[in-house]
Every structure is written in structure tokens, then in C-alpha cells.
Simulated scan of single mutants.
Amino acid sequence: MAADFWAGYISGAIGILVGNPLDLIKTRLQAGTANQPSASPNATGSQLHLPWTKQFEHWTSLGRGAAAPILGYGALNALLFVTYNRSLALLSTGDLHIWPERPSAGTIWAAGALGGLAIFFVSAPTELVKCRAQVSNPARSSWEVTKELWRAGGVRGLYMGGTVTSVRDSVGYGFYFWSYHLSKEAIMDESDGHRSHAVKVLLCGGLAGVVTWASIFPLDVIKTRVQTWDLSPPSANPEAQPLLSRQPAAAAAAPNIVTSRPSTYNIALTTYQHQGLSPFFRGLGICSARAFFVNAVQWAVYEWMMNALAS
């Protein structure tokens, strides 16, 4: 297959591995479950209610929800980069195989947006399973969540919240590629040595990640709440009807996970009416830190692999 496919696949999988701990915290903040106390028995056998940060007392907790994105995000990232590169060539030169020397900023954004739309079939179920696994209480594996969604609604169940996910991806990846190339044009120089070039790639990748998430963060909050609406506490989502927190597996597969879900607009409106604008930016700091680190590594791996596979 093409070099950009494998470079995208491996860089995407590595990005998930290094970023999942902070992504877990971000998702819980967005869904509102980070405000729930975590019960833990003390020496007398009674329950102590600990702050949400104590939910991570075991290091394996930081990997919750990672299985779905590790399996899916490599393929997603491969498809993203292949679609972006082909779209950019087609929009700039009219030929899928002729790479433009200096594409315009608008063309770069449009190609990135097309790449974001192309990953819908992988991104929507991957994001859904990841988010639900991350906020489920008690903990559930990605495979358990997938089976639950399939029983509840089949293919439709796996694409719950798919529309807002596709909008988020399209807008976000437009800014992702646009900001990365803009940063490279601003700081890269042909006289840069190998080490200097590598550092600048890391910096440009990190900046691209921060710009991207800043541009779509309210959309991402809405997406998370749509995908976890039945798992959120009433204080965070007054329309939520918890299905997994205190019910056996059979009850968790109730069909109203999919068929009785409020619309995306209603979930967003209810959140605003009860909590104002603050929930739409909750977790932005954690997300920005994660975005810089993950995308710096991801772009560095991608650029390195493209050079290695081309040689």
C-alpha cells in the first residue's frame, strides 16, 4: 500500500497510546462524570466518598477505553492522511498523483475537511465505544460496550451521535492540516539541520493539535454528551437515564439507549439552560496539553515514516 497509509496508521496508533490517560480525564470532565464521587471501603468496611481524581488509584485505569481507539484509530489515521493527500493533489492540480508545491491555505483546509468526512465510518463507532468505556461505572471493556450497543440497535447503535461526530471531524481536520502547514511555512528553513528540523516538526505538530481542539471543543463536548447521555449523572445531564451504573448486563442492553435518546440539539440546549456556557469549555486545558503532546509525536512519527518508506 501507499507510504502515507502506513505512516498514518502507525502514527495514529502511537498517538493513542501516549495520549489516552489525558483523554480519559478530558472525556469524564466533558460528560460530567468527573464530578461524581468514587466510593471506596475504609478499614471499618464503610464507604468513603473520594474526589474524582481517586478513580485512578490503579495505573491500569489510565488505559480505560484505549482498546477501541488503538484498533480503530490506526485505520482512521491512515484513511485520513490518504484522503487528505489525494484531495489536496486533486484540488490543486486536477491529478490525484501530482503533489502541489505550494497549495493555498483554503485548498489545504478543504482537503483536510474532506479527510475528516472520509473517516466517518471508522471515527463514529470508535469514538462512541471509547467514550462510553471511559465513563462507565462500574468499569466495562470496549468489547462489552460494543456488544451492548449492538444488542441495543445493531449498526445504528454503533453510530449513535454520528452526525455531530462527522461535523466535528470535518471542521477539526480542516484546521488541523491548515495550522500544521501554516506553522511549517512560518518556522521551517531549508538550512535547518536534522535535529533542528525534528524539533520544529514536533513544535508544528503540537501547535496544530492545540489549534484544532480550540476550534472544535464545544462541538466535542456536545458529541461526548450525546454519546454518554444515559451514563451521565442528573446534575450534569438532567435528561440522562443511567443504564450501566447500577444495573445488570441484561438491563444495560435496553433499547432506549438508541431509540429514546434525545436529539443532539435538545442535549446541547438542556446543557446550556441548566449550566450555561462553562460545560462547553470544561476540560479544554487538559485537552490542549494532550493535543500538543500527542500531535507533536504523531506528526514526527508520520514525517519520519514517510521519509523512511520513500527512501
Rank of each mutant, 00 (worst) to 15 (best):
Arg156Trp: 13
Trp229Gln: 00
Ser141Trp: 11
Arg246Ile: 11
Gly115Phe: 08
Ser183Arg: 15
Val226Pro: 03
Asn237Tyr: 05
Ala236Arg: 02
Trp178His: 12
Gly116Arg: 12
Asp220Tyr: 14
Ala139Lys: 06
Lys130Ile: 10
Leu243Thr: 12
Val122Trp: 10
His181Val: 11
Gly115Ile: 08
Ser142Arg: 03
Glu239Phe: 02
Ser142Thr: 15
Phe217Met: 11
Ser245Ile: 05
Glu148Lys: 10
Gly206Glu: 14
Cys204Leu: 13
Arg156Glu: 10
Gly162Cys: 01
Met160Leu: 15
Pro234Asn: 06
Gly174Lys: 12
Ser141His: 13
Lys130Tyr: 12
Ala186Lys: 10
Val221Gly: 04
Phe177Gly: 05
Lys184Cys: 14
Pro242Cys: 00
Ser215Val: 01
Gly116Leu: 08
Lys147Cys: 05
Gly172Val: 05
Val129His: 02
Ile187Asn: 00
Tyr173Pro: 11
Lys147Ser: 14
Gly205Arg: 02
Thr224Gly: 02
Asp230Gly: 00
Arg168Ser: 09
Ser191Leu: 04
Ala110Arg: 02
Arg168Tyr: 06
Gly115Met: 10
Thr212Tyr: 00
Val210Arg: 04
Thr212Trp: 09
Ser123Asn: 15
Met160Phe: 03
Thr212Cys: 05
Thr165Tyr: 10
Ile222Glu: 05
Arg168Leu: 14
Glu144Cys: 04
Arg168Phe: 06
Ser123Ile: 07
Trp143Met: 12
Asn237Val: 06
